[in-house]
C-alpha cells in the first residue's frame, strides 16, 4: 500500500485532540499541578523486558528515545518540584497495530501524598471532564478478585501448573512458546479471560497486581504478594498504568538488574540502568503516586475511531507492516 500525502486523521479529530489537550491543561492548572518538559533522548533507558526502546547515536555514543518520561519526572520530584504533569510524545519499538503506534502521546502525572486509590479517583475526575459524550460507568476490581470471579483461581497462589490447568478448564487454547513462565501465563489469561469480562461500555480500574509484575510500584505494606499498581481499561482496551511509587533505591536497583537478567536469558539487548534515578531515589523521592494515560486511545474512544491512525495526524509512518 503506497502512502498518501494527506493526514490519516480527519481535521475534526485533530480539532478534538486540541480540545482535549486544552481541557487537560485547565484541569491541572486548577489543581496546581505544574506542567513540565523532560528530555526525550537519554543515555539511560528502561530495562523492562516487555518494552523496547528506539536507539540513536550522538558522537558515537548510544542514546535512547524514552518509552515514558517517568525517570526524569521522578528526578524532578526528588529535587522538590512538587506535583507535576507532562504531555509527552513517547516511543516504543515493535508496537504497531490497530491500537498501537510506535510514536504516541502520553499524559503522565505525579501527586505527592496520594496512594494509588486516591490517584484512581483523580483519573476518574479527569475523565469525567474529558469524555464527550459523558461516560458514567467507573468500576474498580482487584487483580486477585477478577481472577477469582472469572477463573476461580488465586493469581497470588497458583503455580504454572495450576495456571495451565485453569486455561484448559476454561478451554483457552494457549500459544506456543509459553514455557514455564508464570507471569506469561497470567498475562495470557488476562488477555483471554479477564479483560474481555470488563464492562463493554465503561471504565474499569484493575488494581493490586502480583508482586512479580510490580514494575516501579511499591509492594503492599500488608501483603507483599501484591504490588500497588493499577491499570485502567475501557472494555478490553488498556488506557493507563499507575503506581503507588516505589521509593526504595536498593529495591529499585535490584529490579533493574533482574530485568536485565531476564533480557539476557531471552537474548534481548541489555539496557543501561539509570543511575541518576537511583541517586534521586537515594536522596529521597516524596511519597507519591503516578500514572500515564494514552491520549490517542482516549481520543479514539471520544470520536469512535476503530484504528489509532485515525487520531494521529500522520499515523501511517510505520504502516508498511500493518493491516
Amino acid at each position: 500500500m503506497s502512502k498518501h500525502w494527506q493526514p490519516t486523521a480527519s481535521i475534526e479529530a485533530i480539532k478534538e485532540k486540541a480540545r482535549i489537550l486544552q481541557s487537560i491543561r485547565a484541569f491541572f492548572a486548577q489543581r496546581n499541578v505544574l506542567e513540565v518538559e523532560t528530555p526525550i533522548i537519554s543515555s539511560a533507558a528502561i530495562t523492562d523486558p516487555q518494552l523496547e526502546s528506539f536507539s540513536t547515536q550522538y558522537n558515537q555514543q548510544e542514546f535512547y528515545l524514552h518509552t515514558s518520561p517517568e525517570f526524569h519526572m521522578k528526578r524532578l520530584l526528588a529535587a522538590g518540584s512538587g506535583d507535576i504533569y507532562q504531555l509527552a510524545k513517547v516511543f516504543r519499538d515493535d508496537e504497531l497495530g490497530r491500537n498501537h503506534n510506535p510514536e504516541f502521546t502520553l499524559l503522565e502525572w505525579y501527586r505527592s501524598g496520594f496512594n494509588h486509590h486516591q490517584l484512581m479517583d483523580e483519573v476518574e475526575d479527569l475523565l469525567r471532564g474529558l469524555m464527550n459524550p459523558a461516560i458514567n460507568s467507573y468500576q474498580r476490581i482487584s487483580y486477585q478478585q477478577a481472577f477469582i470471579n472469572q477463573l476461580e483461581i488465586d493469581p497470588f497462589e497458583a503455580d504454572v501448573k495450576a495456571l495451565k490447568q485453569c486455561a484448559a478448564k476454561f478451554k483457552v487454547e494457549s500459544p506456543q512458546g509459553m514455557e514455564e513462565d508464570r507471569d506469561m501465563w497470567l498475562d495470557w489469561l488476562m488477555v483471554e479471560k479477564i479483560a474481555p469480562s470488563f464492562s463493554k461500555e465503561g471504565f474499569t480500574f484493575l488494581y493490586d497486581y502480583p508482586a512479580s509484575q510490580a514494575c516501579l510500584a511499591r509492594l503492599d505494606k500488608n501483603d507483599s504478594r501484591k504490588a500497588n499498581r493499577f491499570e485502567l481499561f475501557y472494555g478490553e482496551l488498556e488506557l493507563a498504568n499507575g503506581f503507588y511509587e516505589l521509593t526504595d533505591a536498593d529495591e529499585q536497583a535490584k529490579r533493574f538488574k533482574n530485568d536485565n537478567k531476564i533480557r539476557q536469558q531471552r537474548q534481548q539487548k541489555l539496557m543501561p540502568i539509570d543511575d541518576c534515578l537511583l541517586d534521586a531515589l537515594n536522596s529521597g523521592l516524596p511519597d507519591c503516586s503516578g500514572v500515564a494515560i494514552g491520549i490517542d486511545r482516549i481520543l479514539m474512544l471520544i470520536i469512535g475511531a476503530k484504528h489509532i491512525k485515525d487520531v494521529i495526524s500522520f499515523g501511517d509512518e510505520f504502516s508498511e507492516n500493518s493491516i
Binding site: Q50, E95, R98, H100, M184, D187, M190, E236, E238, N241
Partner: peptide
C-alpha cells in the same frame, strides 16, 4: 486475514 497486537498493559504481547 487480520492481525491484531494485544498487550495486557505492561505485560507480554500477543
Amino acid at each position: 486475514i487480520e492481525n491484531e497486537l494485544v498487550k495486557p498493559g505492561k505485560g507480554q504481547a500477543f
